[in-house]
Amino acid sequence: MFTLETVKHLQSLSARPSVTITLPTSRHAPDNQKDPIRLKNLVSEAVDRLEAEYGKRETLKLRETVHELAEGVDHEHNLDGLALFASADYHEVFKLPYRLPERVVIDDTFLTRDLVFAMNRTPQYWAVMLTEKPTRLYLGRGPDLQEVRDHGFPREYSGPGTGVTVQMGIGASPSREIERALEEFTRQIDSGLHEAVKARPFPVALVGLSENLGMFRRVSRNMELIAAEIEGGHDHLSPHDLGELVWPQMQAALRQRRQEIFGQIEQASGQGRTVTDLNEAWQAALDGQVDVMVVEENLHFPAQISGDGRHLKLLPGGEDAPGDAADAVDEMIEHVMQRGGRAVFVDDGALASHGGMVMLTRY
């Protein structure tokens, strides 16, 4: 599954020229029959630009790589978007479960803004099926769930109440021993979930009977991670059907969290932890000071980077040269994410008083 770690890896790569090609695709015929033609046209554009900007002989191998990547795509099994990345040191194609714009970018680094934007629009999340037989962990994007067999999952209860003989002292209550064992079992689930979220910081949906949900609430140290709870005995559902059940409630919870960012902006502003000036925002991103970068969905602009790398100058003509940032917003997103921050996209015009972008700093 294409994850945030994939994006961070792409952001860590640097080579000039680096080619990024993205386009929307279709899952089903006859619409997917148009995808090879659209990709071929974008590849032709990329190849022509490589020859013109970097030389025919100098880019021969890279142009061959781009052609080979495109020719290797099986369009019968497309998803909603396709992204092709190629440089002297790296080449890969990804089929993605969200739509991407039709775009060709050639720069020092790969363009990841569209990926980050798409991932924010259809974010990933964890889903935990709380049951003793067994508790399962899923990684979700939209209604698509994929079971994760890591962090101690799946985990099955095998303590008192399952036919296991347990030595108890005089006056001990069997029901209390079962409850204690179930509490310990739930703590182990909570610990495993904590490790999963630590590795991939996504919100969590809990699914289970009311007694299992109640037990989790009592013993969990990670309730702040829980975005949604779905009550009921749904452990018989397939991952597909479970995803169809969980996603609408998770979507509503995530929509509410997205609206909460404006309260966070107001609070951070009162604490002197917001930056809106272009150069201050750029420097905060470079220095790892940004906790959350809030940006309007379609804000983008090229900029000239100073010799020391610390200042930006807008290029109103829309033309960038070698050493410039084709999209300064994308560059800032990359720096923020590489340093442990996150990007949140909001509707166009929502940050008009902040110039379309605001950084919430850590201090």
Rank of each mutant, 00 (worst) to 15 (best):
P97D: 10
E184G: 13
L360C: 04
L130D: 04
L50Q: 06
G263L: 08
T135N: 05
R155N: 13
W126H: 12
M359W: 01
D107K: 01
V93P: 02
A88D: 10
G263V: 04
M332R: 13
L209A: 11
E184L: 12
Q289K: 13
S26P: 08
L10H: 05
R273D: 06
R49C: 10
G208H: 00
A46G: 06
G288P: 05
P30H: 09
Y90M: 06
V197I: 06
D235F: 07
R217N: 04
P30I: 08
E266T: 15
L23E: 01
F185A: 02
V295A: 05
L50F: 04
V346R: 02
A88N: 14
A86M: 02
I305R: 13
L100V: 00
A303P: 03
D107E: 13
E183G: 03
G161W: 03
W126Q: 02
S306P: 05
V197H: 02
K313D: 15
I170D: 10
R200C: 12
L82A: 14
D287M: 14
S173K: 13
M332Y: 06
Y138I: 12
L13A: 05
T165S: 12
D327Y: 12
G270D: 08
E334P: 09
L23Q: 03
D347A: 14
E331G: 05
Q167E: 13
W247Y: 09
V246I: 14
N279I: 07
D107M: 03
D291V: 07
L315M: 09
D31Q: 14
K34W: 03
V219G: 09
A52T: 15
D108C: 13
Q146D: 12
A88S: 08
T274A: 08
Y363L: 15
R200M: 15
A328F: 04
N222I: 14
E260T: 08
A118W: 00
T361R: 00
T109Y: 15
L237G: 05
K8W: 07
D277I: 10
D108E: 13
N41Q: 10
G232D: 01
A29L: 09
G72K: 02
A228K: 06
P174D: 05
E211K: 10
D31F: 06
A343D: 03
N298W: 04
